[in-house]
Amino acid sequence: MLWIKAFHIIAVITWFAGIFYLPRLFVYHAMAEDEVSRERFKVMERKLYRGIMVPSMLVVIALGLWLISFNMEYYLVSTHWMHAKLTLVALLIGYHHYCGHLVKVFRDDRNTRSHVWFRWFNEVPVLLLIAIVILVVVRPF
Score class of each variant (00 low, 15 high):
1 M>A: 05
4 I>S: 02
5 K>E: 09
5 K>R: 11
5 K>L: 09
7 F>L: 13
7 F>G: 02
8 H>L: 08
8 H>Y: 09
10 I>Y: 13
11 A>D: 15
11 A>Y: 10
12 V>K: 08
12 V>F: 11
12 V>N: 11
15 W>I: 10
16 F>I: 06
17 A>G: 07
18 G>P: 05
19 I>P: 12
21 Y>K: 02
21 Y>P: 04
21 Y>Q: 02
23 P>R: 05
24 R>Q: 15
26 F>N: 01
26 F>M: 01
27 V>S: 11
27 V>R: 10
28 Y>C: 02
32 A>L: 07
32 A>T: 00
33 E>R: 01
34 D>L: 02
36 V>M: 13
36 V>S: 09
36 V>R: 13
36 V>Y: 06
38 R>H: 10
41 F>S: 03
42 K>Q: 10
43 V>M: 14
46 R>V: 03
48 L>N: 07
48 L>C: 04
48 L>H: 03
49 Y>F: 07
49 Y>N: 04
50 R>W: 15
51 G>C: 01
54 V>Y: 02
54 V>H: 03
55 P>Y: 07
56 S>A: 14
58 L>K: 10
58 L>T: 02
58 L>F: 15
60 V>T: 13
61 I>N: 05
61 I>Q: 09
62 A>N: 14
62 A>R: 02
63 L>W: 08
63 L>A: 12
65 L>E: 13
68 I>C: 07
69 S>A: 06
70 F>M: 06
71 N>C: 01
76 L>D: 04
77 V>E: 15
78 S>L: 12
78 S>R: 15
79 T>S: 15
80 H>R: 12
82 M>K: 04
83 H>P: 00
84 A>N: 13
85 K>S: 04
85 K>M: 03
87 T>N: 04
88 L>T: 13
88 L>P: 04
90 A>C: 03
90 A>Y: 08
94 G>S: 08
94 G>Y: 08
95 Y>K: 05
95 Y>F: 12
95 Y>C: 09
96 H>M: 11
96 H>I: 03
100 G>Y: 08
100 G>V: 01
101 H>F: 04
101 H>N: 14
104 K>G: 05
105 V>F: 03
111 N>G: 02
111 N>L: 00
111 N>K: 06
112 T>D: 10
113 R>F: 08
113 R>T: 01
114 S>E: 03
116 V>I: 15
116 V>A: 15
117 W>G: 07
118 F>L: 04
120 W>R: 15
121 F>E: 09
123 E>P: 00
125 P>V: 03
125 P>Y: 00
126 V>N: 09
126 V>C: 06
128 L>I: 14
129 L>E: 12
130 I>A: 07
131 A>H: 01
132 I>W: 09
132 I>Q: 02
134 I>R: 01
134 I>F: 05
135 L>N: 13
135 L>F: 01
137 V>M: 14
139 R>G: 03
139 R>Y: 01
140 P>F: 03
141 F>A: 06
141 F>D: 03
